[in-house]
Nucleic acid binder design. Structure first.
Lengths: 131, 131
DNA sequence: CTGGATGCAAAGGGTTTGCACGTTT
DNA sequence: AAACGTGCAAACCCTTTGCATCCAG
């Protein structure tokens, strides 16, 4: 890993992220940052966000890879995603815990909650063997 | 909503999805289906997948919209996504239930589980008022 | 001074869409 | 026959990347 310097743009990006609750997109940050750096380029925002995620200062909210995946198993279940090979595996759920999970949040907020999804991340059996 | 017919391509897509556990990408399905329909186009696969998702025959595995979102709040928490306006809201977690959730899965599989994420979906307060 | 960072623009990669033709009902 | 579905290719959209220049250490 290379050494990262403290560019003004990067520092401002962290500031912006720490001062908002809107979970911005890269473009939102770009628009906001443009006021400070009129010549700012979107590429700079993306490069810095990637660095900030890499160094653990920022979290990226995403599911799996950039492309969608599909399944015909319609009943409720969780998913496990292997961080090594990308495989997605269905997981049975413990209904009792699952219900408690949703109840705990429902009773604690004014949001109208319809459903929830859970993903587990780690290494699958196959990849465990191959390392 | 329009009436959907039973095109051969669409029927095969459901068949394929029901017969596999790999949670395929659109492209994976395209490659597989090409054996039956040599002139198949990727657009057809995408169109049909969207129809199947719309009619509830297939689930799409994704998180939020197509673009990533970022946050500087690094500590563990859940997210709520408003299905109406796309807003993402941080949710506190009940550590006890959260731990039980991870334990339940860990004890029930040979996968090496490192972490998990939970998202809740529904309608936010603002959108509830505006309807 | 040296290597990382930036701006700009082009390229990438997954997904959507307009159009003319083919198929289902 | 009418309306939906398909193939093809172009268009889209978000993100990445090559390159010359700029700037932090």
């Amino acid at each position: 890993m290379s050494d990262y310097r403290n560019s003004k743009q990067r520092l401002r990006i962290i500031e912006i992220l720490k001062s908002t609750e809107v979970h911005p997109t890269a473009d939102w940050i770009y628009e906001k940052l443009k006021k400070d750096f009129p010549n700012l380029s979107l590429g700079t925002v993306y490069r810095n966000l990637n660095i900030l995620v890499e160094t653990g200062q920022v979290d990226r909210l995403e599911f799996g890879k950039t492309f969608d995946r599909f399944e015909a198993k319609i009943d409720k279940h969780y998913h496990f995603i292997c961080e090594s090979c990308g495989t997605v595996i269905d997981l049975d759920i413990d209904r009792q815990i699952d219900n408690k999970l949703e109840e705990a949040v429902k009773n604690n907020t004014k949001l109208k909650i319809k459903t929830h999804k859970v993903q587990f991340y780690g290494i699958c059996e196959k990849c465990l063997k191959n390392k």
